[in-house]
């Protein structure tokens, strides 16, 4: 299947759109970023009121460290060396997940294999015998106050990732609040998957063809920033 938008451009667009979501809130926010596109969100956040929490025990994660500044004892949850920001702190894993489970983390940005019409998320395992791990995924989707899914609209084989009902093992039920793909922004409004922004390369009818889930198109739909 020919991609509508090249991969790197798609990933950047998704990350920038989610960063804007945080910047527009104009308040102090504590956010947790998963691996992949979610980590890229940090590249587009400006100002000093958004703090990144890493579940391996750090509050106030700075940019990735490279070369001489890399310290393998100072890493994010994706095992990448990172830097400190002024006012950062360290704590053990129970305190870290206490922050998450206790509702003290404003938002988590995660990748997903599937999100369904009910807002259920499958992102922890593809049962193919090669994976064996859940990490903090289940704690994050059930604990963070807002769950934002950052993912490509379709899989590499063209298979829709927004589905009627998850076919893969579910990470958390009814947890998704916002899904951002390169083709659109979907909000769960009163439990209904609602398209609120759409990429200029497509239109709601064509987007529905690329999507398995039934969604409602917002009357106030806008064009997504590219």
């Amino acid at each position: 299947m020919k991609e509508i938008i090249p991969a790197e451009q798609a990933r950047t667009r998704i990350a920038r759109r989610i960063a804007r979501e945080f910047m527009e809130r104009d308040e102090t926010l504590i956010i947790n970023l998963g691996v992949g596109i979610p980590t890229m969100v940090a590249n587009y956040i400006q100002g000093d009121s958004i703090f990144i929490q890493a579940e391996n025990g750090m509050m106030g994660v700075g940019p990735k460290a490279d070369g001489d500044s890399a310290d393998r004892r100072l890493i994010n949850a994706g095992r990448e060396p990172v830097t400190e920001t002024p006012g950062c702190s360290y704590f053990d894993s129970a305190a870290s997940f206490g922050m998450i489970r206790g509702g003290h983390v404003d938002a988590t940005v995660i990748g997903a294999f599937e999100v369904d019409e009910a807002g259920s998320i499958a992102n922890w395992i593809i049962p193919n015998g090669r994976q064996l791990g859940v990490g903090g995924a289940m704690d994050l989707v059930s604990g963070a106050r807002q769950v934002i899914v950052a993912m490509r609209h379709n899989g590499r084989d063209g298979r829709p990732k927004l589905v009627r009902s998850c076919s893969l093992p579910v990470t958390g039920f009814h947890e998704a609040d916002l899904v951002v793909t390169e083709l659109g922004v979907f909000r769960f409004i009163d439990g209904v998957m609602t398209l609120t922004e759409i990429a200029p390369e497509t239109d709601p009818a064509r987007l529905a063809d690329l999507t398995d889930a039934a969604f409602v198109t917002s009357t106030g739909i806008r064009t997504m920033d590219t």
Binding site: E55, I100, V134, A137, D139, G143
Partner: peptide, 8 residues
């Protein structure tokens, strides 16, 4: 497997 937060 125990979810990371539950494990901690």
């Amino acid at each position: 497997l125990v979810p990371q937060g539950s494990f901690a």
